[in-house]
Design a protein around this nucleic acid. Structure first.
Lengths: 240, 240
DNA sequence: ACCATGTTTCGGTCGCCACCAAAACATTGC
DNA sequence: GCAATGTTTTGGTGGCGACCGAAACATGGT
């Protein structure tokens, strides 16, 4: 069986402390630069670069160039799922950690969380999906755009997206969600959207971690403005 | 985060070709001896012994002494699940393998398979469960027993379990199932049971692999003798 | 054009670990 | 008890790879 060595190869890549740190730093779907990852792993940029190259070779990471930065993220949802499997295993061995708390919190994390300065999770993906099919926005790696219809929509919401001319490279970018397969909205638009949600009290940050919770008012507002039913979305996620 | 190093430790253990071979050889829940594993990994007994000791330390393997042999098996279902996660990842990268074939076959494998000389999988676990609650058998690591009621039952079935006095150390042993959490029946009784099932045409071996399929006649017979509904059991498995 | 910053390549050192042979240990069967 | 078989411990060798500093390369800002 040739898969044998392939598995060993993958596991060996994951099984080096520096690389483990790198991968875990990316588990929530964010894309970080090479130097940020070097810092996260506590190693020098050259060493990090070598690790990153290896992880890329094995397709455990994906990369996109962005000026003089290189943004790395997990190569596929299966990679995230592998890491979770490991987390689950060591949690089991510990037996000190209460399995009750990680369970629900994990579900919440998958549903809505912050990813840097924008929203991520099932909810964020649903929103991106909706806005795209309504032709409000156009997500693209090299900047993306907001249509006139979209600008009016965001104006009604009171979301601050910057001047229309400002649509630079990081304006309305997709950001791959690891718990879903689809992208959510990053960039200036994603950021403005989260600020708006927070200011209007639709969502709230948890005191710790990156979990975001939807308020009662938020549930009503989101179904009104976006046509997204929070309760049904939650159910759909739980079934999956 | 201290879990970081723990994950690296686990992954590093899995990420060594010889150890990978050892773990994969055990993925179907069988328990193999040290020398069998040495042979499976293509290494000398001393080297295997060292690997096995490490895997034991990390609780990735469980061991039980049996005379001058030591039987090793996976430490918990989560270990199997981790390995599966890896298999799934490399399968994704390959893109050559048809994902269609592994899907259903995998489900069948979880439902009923051979494990050495006895049955394993959901069905086998259900049978063990049933026979134990009916007080037909008593599963125990050091041999186990078959009650008088059980002997009559197996007699009716026409299953050959050897003379009653023969109840040695490997008579009615539990064998941990990786796809379920519960044990199924190994030893003389488990073996006799599978022979009986095959002879009466209740189940059939697939031409390749360890998959066992239940025939139409088998479905009727099993619900009659064991009170186990194959269709509902399959449904329950698919939901999980 | 030049400098600043981020990233990769190069060269070389160091430590860890997989491996085996031989020997010690454990257990069964006679 | 002794011989046979399975397993682990010991000792020693060899190679791979993680690491960093220095330098080369790439890109953006001024």
């Amino acid at each position: 069986m040739p898969t044998n060595n392939q598995i060993a190869e993958v596991a060996a890549l994951v099984g080096e402390p520096s690389r483990t740190s790198i991968l875990l730093a990316l588990i929530d779907g964010r894309a970080l630069t090479a130097s940020e990852l070097a810092h996260a792993a506590g190693i020098s940029p050259p060493t990090a670069s070598e690790h990153l190259a290896r992880l890329m070779d094995a397709e455990l990471l994906a990369m996109e160039k962005q000026g003089r930065h290189r943004y790395f993220r997990l190569g596929s949802p299966k990679v995230a799922s592998l890491l979770e499997s490991m987390l689950s295993l060591v949690a089991e061995r510990d037996a000190t950690v209460s399995a009750i708390r990680t369970g629900p919190r994990d579900r919440d994390l998958r549903f809505a969380r912050s990813c840097y300065d924008h929203l991520a999770g099932s909810l964020a993906v649903a929103i991106a999906d909706r806005l795209e099919t309504m032709e409000m926005i156009d997500l693209a790696d090299d900047g993306g755009t907001v249509s006139e219809k979209g600008q009016a929509f965001f104006g009604d919401l009171g979301a601050e997206l910057g001047a229309a001319g400002q649509q630079g490279r990081r304006y309305c970018r997709p950001c791959l969600d690891w718990s879903e397969r689809r992208p959510h909205i990053a960039g200036r638009v994603g950021s403005g959207l989260m600020v708006c949600f927070l200011e209007r009290g639709w969502v709230k940050r948890q005191t710790e971690g990156r979990v975001i919770s939807v308020t009662r008012a938020g549930e009503r507002a989101i179904v009104e403005h976006f046509g997204i039913d929070i309760v049904r979305l939650r159910e759909r996620q739980d079934r999956a």
